[in-house]
Design a binder for these strands. Structure first.
Lengths: 267, 267
DNA sequence: CAGTGGTCTAGACCACACT
DNA sequence: GTGTGGTCTAGACCACTGC
């Protein structure tokens, strides 16, 4: 077959138009073929060629389309699967990951009960406290890669388990991608918030970073969480990203941890 | 070459003695060849055939030894490398991971300064408060998979950055594997504690789980950390495991988070 | 049965490090 | 140059799913 110094064919241009292997003058910028394929697939995902839940073409089809071997496509898909962007199902196909059927109810929530086997402590009850459109404060704008004063949405809500408030959250979303989000959509919805984002706004959260601190409940939070002012709370500031590391959500949570804990796996 | 329904040769027995593919009567228990190879390599690591920092045999050598193809060995090593048990270095070889040269000073510590680029806030100063041998309390025994009353070591210490106390830790170690650990070894040592464990006791920590809560500083912790009683602190309970998911260390830490935060990456 | 992902092989060549 | 890991290929066969 073709020698390794090779250019994957894009769909439109079967000849050779894609990124090349070690071509540019200055930087050698060698990038393995499977990486280039991974990027091509990623671009199709971003462009919406395959929507969440869809089956993507088989490895052989993609190999033919990109004019590489099946093994190379396989390695590209392998990485996308470990990044949780694709899901392989033996005998069926490879699918675009989705929050909808991904019944790990809360994608990024790491709060678990100290005792009791499952998160099956009943569904969390959600109470929206506030949902408004405003201009981004400087710090929020910085983290969401906006300019200070750009339109943002702010949602505040309380999550309760078994009738006991456990989490107070303040969520900031960029106004552009989430134009049209209303309090009705949030309160009427029964699934995870990220499933709503995906279905209604085409925004899929891919990864997130969190900064965790211990703080004291202030006069605002204490009554909402039903704890005395000064009680220790876990402050969790989460920045969630969509494809291409674009920040898309800033979430500031206060967690009660008397009977729950934040679980983390290190390796 | 040989057909896929195949048995990897162990070193000692070139014929066929290892785990077989789908042999046992009841459970089909199909396990891919590369998984079996992975387990064989893992066994060699546990047995100490290759010590931390050593180079292991080349992929071709291992392929010959196990009578499989180089690609199969490669896939086994790939997984061990992503588990941080092995480290590949192109052009040089594959090495057993070690804490010694692994200059990420603190293997599992996720506490970072809020401002300031690096963890280069100067070396942490360590002050041992206590180091004693005692009988395991029930809860400690349970987590370390010992029996209540078994011998354990308890170490309490304070970590300070730039002269300011930041972390109060209580460390529990099983008495057996850590027989001979003295306060002199801990205080005289300048490297990470896990490097000491590895060098002196042959105990390598492979992964860990953490349970995080927000708590109030009590009368014991407050003066040691230099904060008023009742101040919010991050409580981090870490259980660290060696090969084979054997628990080997229980660490209960209290972190000050006024100017630092616990960082986590979610995906 | 056909179609999909999953495993395994054998051999080629590239990139990197040491000597 | 030699030896190592890294990439890529082509083809075989296995395991699972659903028609």
């Amino acid at each position: 077959m073709a020698p390794p110094s090779h250019t994957p064919a894009t769909d439109a241009v079967p000849g050779d138009a894609g990124v090349s292997v070690g071509a540019e003058g200055a930087a050698p910028a060698f990038s393995p073929l499977y990486q280039q394929i991974k990027n091509l697939i990623l671009r199709s995902l971003q462009a919406g060629e395959w929507k969440p839940g869809d089956m993507i073409p088989s490895e052989f089809d993609l190999a033919a389309r990109f004019r590489v071997s099946q093994g190379t496509v396989r390695k590209a898909i392998d990485e996308l699967a470990t990044d949780n962007l694709l899901v392989r199902r033996q005998g069926k196909g490879t699918f675009v990951a989705t929050h909808a059927e991904q019944h790990t109810q809360y994608r990024f929530l790491r709060l678990l009960p100290d005792v009791g086997t499952l998160q099956e402590q009943g569904q969390a009850e959600r109470r929206i406290i506030e949902c408004r459109r405003l201009r981004a404060p400087a710090e929020v704008a910085r983290q969401l890669a906006l300019r200070t004063g750009d339109a943002v949405l702010q949602v505040r809500r309380v999550l309760a388990f078994d009738g006991v408030a456990a989490i107070l959250e303040e969520i900031w979303l960029p106004g552009g991608p989430f134009k049209g989000l209303t309090v009705e959509m949030l309160s009427g919805d029964k699934g995870p918030m990220y499933a709503l984002f995906e279905a209604q706004f085409g925004v899929r959260m891919v990864r997130a970073t969190e900064k965790i601190k211990a703080v004291s409940a202030d006069g605002d939070a204490a009554p909402l969480l039903g704890v005395p002012p000064g009680s220790p709370l876990l402050s969790v500031e989460r920045l969630a990203f969509t494809y291409n590391d674009e920040p898309m959500e800033l979430r500031r949570g206060l967690y009660r941890t008397e009977t729950r804990h934040y679980r983390n796996e290190l390796s």
